[in-house]
Computed example of a mutant assay.
Amino acid sequence: MAEDQHAALIRAYIDEVFNGHRLDGVGQYWDDALTSHWLGMETIHGLPAWRAAMEAFFAAFPNAAYTLDDMFFAGGQGVWRGHWQATQQGEWQGIAASGRNVTWTVIIIGRFAGGKLIEDWVELDRLGLFQQLGCIPTGSSVG
């Protein structure tokens, strides 16, 4: 698969899944035996587990919208950088619904094979997100 095809796949994936919250056709983007590393804390194996994690994310952030800021591809890998904007309306990762509007950055490194994503590494500004959600205090000036 050529780099321009990878770019087209990711743009369609972001449009349908990230911004459309449509998970029924996710198999056209992801291999069934995918591996997805989230935040260096959790590794998700297989399309059903990945889908369940995204369903939980969208349930907590029903208006989540992703803006793509940059992407590039080399061979069978790619990197895309963007940011999410959402309002937390439900529990997520042990954090009760806060009703807060939040924005956080994300960098995803993906590996492709057979015309689909087979593995990714998701790094996000978890500290900034959790501070905005009110579960981690922000620093104060020492005076």
Rank of each mutant, 00 (worst) to 15 (best):
M41H: 09
A59W: 03
Y29R: 01
I95R: 01
A33M: 02
K116T: 11
W84F: 13
E123K: 00
G134C: 10
E119S: 01
D70N: 09
G143H: 13
L68I: 11
C135A: 09
A52G: 15
W104N: 02
I14M: 09
D31A: 15
T35A: 15
Q89K: 14
A59L: 06
S141V: 12
G90L: 10
V142H: 12
R22L: 14
W92T: 03
G94N: 04
I95V: 15
D120K: 02
G139K: 07
G143Q: 06
W38Y: 12
Q131P: 06
V26H: 11
R22F: 06
R81I: 10
P137F: 04
H45P: 01
A113M: 03
T35F: 02
K116Y: 03
S141E: 15
T67F: 04
Q89C: 14
G20N: 08
L9R: 07
V122C: 06
T138Q: 15
A65V: 10
I14R: 05
A65K: 15
L68P: 03
V26C: 11
Q89G: 10
N63K: 05
D4F: 05
A86P: 00
A49C: 08
Q131G: 08
L34D: 11
D70M: 06
I95W: 05
G76H: 13
N19R: 11
H45A: 10
R81V: 08
Y13A: 07
Q28F: 02
T35Y: 04
A60C: 11
N63G: 12
Y13G: 05
P48A: 12
P62T: 05
H83L: 02
W80Y: 15
Q77D: 13
H21W: 12
Q132A: 14
Q89E: 15
E55P: 00
D120I: 00
D4A: 08
T67H: 13
A12E: 15
I109A: 03
A56C: 03
W92D: 02
E123V: 02
G20R: 04
R81T: 05
N63P: 00
R100E: 13
R100G: 06
A12Y: 05
R111Q: 05
Y13N: 11
E42F: 03
L129A: 12
D32G: 14
H6K: 04
E123C: 01
I136P: 01
A86T: 03
E16W: 00
F72P: 00
A74Y: 06
L133W: 10
R51A: 07
E123T: 01
I44W: 02
E42V: 10
W104G: 02
